[in-house]
Every structure is written in C-alpha cells, then in structure tokens.
Nucleic acid binder design. Structure first.
Lengths: 347, 347
DNA sequence: GAACGTGTTGTAAGCGGTGACAACACCAGT
DNA sequence: ACTGGTGTTGTCACCGCTTACAACACGTTC
C-alpha cells in the first residue's frame, strides 16, 4: 500500500527473478524472455512499484528532469514560456522551475538545480556568465534564453533590435522629439539591447533620448514611481519608451497623477503585448514576442543537446503592435507589416 | 577545476581523514576535534567540493528541497505566491515549482516531484484528493493551498465567501437585478466557493444569477469569447461577476465588440486585483488577495511540518477593491453595514 | 595499575538502483 | 560427442554519501 517502501528487491522476489532482470524490464532492455517480462510487469503492478528516482539518478546518470531558470515569474512573459517549454519537454522528463529573484543565493540554487537535472535553460539576467561556463564545462547541456551568448552555448532569443527601432521610428514619425527611455537596462540584457537599438534609431532621426529614467524593477509600481520622480525633478519628455508593458502601465498611472493625458500630452510605448495592454485607455502600442514559441524552441534545443545533437542559436521575430498610446492620429501607422488593432476578439 | 567530479573520498584524502569525518564536518556534528575540522574545511575549499545532492538524498533521508504544485503560472496570482514562498523557504532548501496545466500526466509528475522533495505544497485543482491522501500516507509533509481540505492536511487559503458576498451585495446595491457569473467553477475549487457564496448572497436579495456562463479557461480571451457567445445566444445580463480579473478584462473586450459601455450598460466585477485592474477603463471593481502572504504562510507551514510540528489551517482575509466598473455613481461603495465591506480603493 | 569514562576517528553496511561481466541453457554445425 | 554461437539471467561492484558501531587514545578514579 505504501508505494514508497517497495524496492526492486521486493519486485524481484515477487517475480522470482534477480534485480537485474527487473531493471532490464524497466528500461525495456531487449534481452528479456517474454514470459519473464510478463511476470516482472505483473509483479510491478501487484506491488505498485515505482522506481526511486534518486537511486536511479545516483546509479545511472540521468535525472529525468530538465531545469529552467528565470529571473522572476511575474508578468505575462514567463508563464507563457513555461507553457511552451512544458508542452514540448514535459512528457519526457520533469521540469524544475527556478526563479532567482536576484537573490544573492541564486548562484547556489542554480548549482543545486544543476545537480538534479540532465539539462538546463538559463534565462536573462539570472546568473553570471562564469557560472554558465562552469556548468557547460561540467558537461551539462545548457541553452540560453533571451540572453547574450556565452562561449558557444546555443541561444534562443527574440529580436529586440528590429522592433525597438520600429518603435522608435513610429514615435518620431508621430512628431515626437523629446523621448526618454524608462527601465533598468543593467538588470536585463534584453532590455539593454532594446535601449541600445532605440537610442540608435532615435539618434539617427536627430532625437536624443538622454540617459534612461531608471526604475527599481519591472512592475507597474516601479514605473509609476520612477516616472513621477523624474517629472518632479524636471525631466519632461513628451514620449516615453518603457522597457515593458508593466512599466508602461506605470506611466499611465503617473500621467493620471500628474494630470497628463496619454496619447496627447504624453506618448508611451511598452514591450511584451501584455494581455491587458489593449484594454488600457488608450490602447498601448507595444511589441509582441512569440513567448510560447520561445519556450518550445528552448525545450527542443535542450532535448536535442541531450540526445547528443548540435543546436544553432535562433532569433525569433517580434511584432510591432500599434495602438493609440502614441497619439490617436497615427499618421504613418503601417510602415511595417502588422495587424494594427488586436483590440477585439483577436486571432 | 570540475567541481562535479570531486567526492568525499578526495576531500578525505586531501585532509588525511576518513570520509566519515568529512561527513561529520559537513553536517556540523559536534564530536570533531577543532584541528580536524579546520583541516577538513580547508580541504573542502581547496578542492571546491560540494556534496552530491543525489547521494545525500539517497543515503540520508533529506532532499533539501520543497515542492510547490500550481495548476498554472499565468496571471498575477502565482508569481506573487511563489515570491512569498521562496522568501521564507528559499534560504533553507531549494524550491521546485511544478505547473500541471491540467495535463493528464500531472499525476505522475506530482508523484515524481514528491520523490525529490522533503515536503510539498499543493495548490488548487492540480491533482485529485486521492493522490494527496496517498502522499500524506507515504509520510510526506503536505500543505494545501487555496483548496478544500483533504483529511487532516493543513490548508492555507483566502476568504472567498466573505468577499464574494460583499461583491454581490455591492452589485445589488447598485440596483442590478440581472446578474450572471462567468468562469469555470469545475476546474478551480476557489472559484466554486466564490460562485456558491455569490449565488447565496444574490438569492438572499432576490436576484437569480441562473447558470454560470462557462469559460474554457481563465484568460482574457476565454472571457471575451464566452461573453460574446452568451450574448449572441440571447443571454443579456446587466451585470457579470467574473471568476478573476482576466476574465473580467475579457468582458471589457466583449463589451467593446458588442457596443456596450462598462459601468453603465454593463457592470463587471473581477477577482485578484490584477496589477493593471485599476488602469482599465473604467477601473475594475475586484477583490485583492494577500498572495504573497499566502506563499509565506504555506512555506512556514511546510517548514513547521518538516520540523515535526503541528500546523493549523488558516484562512486569510481578502479585501474588496471598489472602482468604477459597477457604475461611476457608486452610491454606497465604501459605507455599507455588510460584514466584509472594509472596502477601499486599493490598499 | 586495572578498570572506566569521554572524546575522537575509522570501518563498513546500507540507501535503491544500474550495468559490466560471468554463467548457463540450448541448439546448430561438424 | 565437441565446439561455438545466441539468448537469457544472475552476481556483484559501483554511484557518493550517512550513520551505526567498533576502535582507540587519553586522562581519571579507586
């Protein structure tokens, strides 16, 4: 009745064979007589035996598990990635999710995780390059997600630069010439990439974004606070490019507090196409990333690596989603292939 | 250099002691001479040894890890719970997060997880009572989160009924007499609880909510689709109580498509106080749950259980957050003699 | 000086599996 | 009858650590 206590020995005894044979049946080894196989299977069922994963991991070399390390789990981003990931890998192995939350102990937690999995996906700014390199050196298959390459470790990422430029152009096309960036590029490599591209595109159009308005995190609150503080400190951009939709939503909140109208007094852009982004008022112009695909690709990459295959890095396309937060008159909205309004039934 | 290959034997050799002594030093066993302890510690550092978790788990009985099982990870809910959970437990053990996503293999995944952890938190509709009972019978410390009790397993939950009633009363106080519930009570026990309480409160005020409008999930899209289909099928409530904020946002979308104005033509309530709920137009009246505390409590409960202690179930208070989605004129918003209406705008 | 704690350390038996290797039965070829 | 595969099964040495238990070196005590 207590499955936790049954061992190979019990099963072997029940079936009248040796433990090696039980192990063979378990692992579908070919050289087992049909009759024996049946008897063993019957014994397994009768006793309700499930092999102890820990013992298997110690003896063999497989944990039957894959790890995935995120900086955080909030926002619309991660859940979708995980979904894609699990859909692909979940049937073959367990998936261990770890969120580092910038804890100082992150390093240890990741190392600990590394011991319990056969392969690992490391996303964004979770651990330093050194640790990644160490894990790879130890022979662990590692795939990087939305993070700059480390050595020859494969990377699955989305195109930040392209859409960042498109977003910046969109803003300039609307006539904006005082633009600021809002976010914390130092704690998210993809945000850094976006900011760099935005700055480049803006400067190419003779707009100087100046120093980014720094936030303490990537939540709505963080955006609101940073925005209000900047405003009170005399920083008065007419357009703000936020690092993600939540920060952008924070700007909405700040605008409300300050007494500005989004879309007319203040243009705002986000990033992620949060599920409520289209329901803000006015709708938030942002960039949609194929998050589930990101997860799927990452999972496939690890599985391939596990199977001994070679994996190339990929950059997935992102898509500009134009709504009304940069002004309702959107003169040149369609410079790019995009569905300009996702605000109805979608699809 | 490759830390993965160093074992107790290496350390023992380096320090000139036996592996037992190394193990003793590692586990802070008292009976080790100071000099020996120092030498061993030095050897550990020199070799960069980190004990193999798998071997420890197999030999001893501890995995140094706690598991937490969620139905899903999307929405504002789970990330916060995890944050609270990790803040409390994270320093002592690793945390393995598992999302079941209603996969048929969920059962196996949870069993698998159970083998790799010392204790487990099971949230909502992830696995059936039978499995929970089995795990408990196997001696695994289990804490239930936002889920009905199973045997004497401790439960950490939030008050669904109280705020559900307050929400229903709020709606009736606004003069609404055709109210519908939107969601899928069959796949989330807390939603079922809310719906039951809402129905009770509505009927007590002579309002019949009828059958809930069923959704396929709890995302924005699911709410929009279900709402539009219901409307087209002739179901025309003037007020809808959604199971969570995302479904409520879906109603906003549906209203937009149908041509209804939220707050005047159609009243809407949500649940969760999603971070963007206040930025919808009009602001969404909803219920805030202390999600991080939920995680903290759950973690404390497991840790107590692990330490051999006794844990009582708790029900945390929730808070009505009144905004404008039930009508801007909100006649009796905060001041109402009803039990749970310690309501304000976002606490 | 023999007997006895006390503190410190080593030996070795597991934990529950895996897998190399040996052993064995059985049948074909010679 | 003898040799040589082929297929099937058992034996046993690990995997890296924990933890009785035994062993030993010391003062103490009588």
């Amino acid at each position: 009745m207590t499955p936790g206590k049954v061992t190979v020995y019990d099963v072997a005894g029940e079936a009248g064979v040796s433990i090696a044979t039980v192990s063979r049946v378990l692992r579908d080894h070919p050289n087992v007589a049909d009759g024996t196989r049946d008897r063993v299977k019957q014994a397994i069922d009768a006793l309700g035996w499930r092999p102890n994963q820990t013992a298997r991991a110690l003896a063999g070399k497989t944990n039957d598990a894959i790890g995935i390390v995120f900086p955080d789990l909030s926002g619309p981003y991660y859940a979708e990635v995980i979904r894609g990931f699990e859909r692909t890998s979940g049937h073959r192995s367990a998936v261990h999710i770890l969120a580092t939350h910038e804890r100082p102990s992150a390093h240890d937690h990741v190392r600990g995780l590394a011991e319990r999995v056969d392969g690992m996906v490391v996303m964004g700014q979770t651990v330093d390059d050194e640790l990644v390199a160490e894990l790879v050196a130890d022979g662990l298959p590692v795939v990087l997600l939305a993070r700059p390459a480390v050595g020859s470790t494969p990377v699955v990422a989305t195109d930040n630069a392209g859409s960042a430029r498109a977003l910046a152009d969109h803003l300039v096309d609307h006539g904006h010439d005082t633009v600021a960036l809002l976010g914390d590029p130092d704690h998210a490599p993809d945000v850094e990439e976006r900011f760099t591209a935005m700055r480049g595109a803006l400067e190419a159009r003779d707009v100087d974004p100046g120093e980014p308005i720094l936030t303490r995190g990537f939540e709505v609150e963080d955006g609101a606070i940073a925005m209000i503080e900047a405003w009170e400190a005399g920083r008065r951009p007419r357009a703000v490019m936020a690092a993600n939709d939540q920060l952008a939503a924070g700007i909405y909140r700040a605008a409300d507090a300050i007494g500005l109208a989004i879309g007319t007094d203040l243009a705002v852009t986000g990033w992620d196409d949060h599920d409520l982004a289209g329901l803000l008022h006015p709708g938030l112009t942002t960039v949609a990333q194929p998050m589930r695909t990101l997860g799927t690709r990452a999972a496939n990459a690890v599985l391939t690596l596990l199977a001994g295959g070679q994996v190339d890095s990929v950059v997935l396309e992102t898509e500009l989603v134009v709504r009304d937060s940069c002004g309702p008159d959107c003169p040149l909205a369609p410079p790019l292939p995009h569905p300009s309004s996702r605000s109805t039934t979608g699809g």
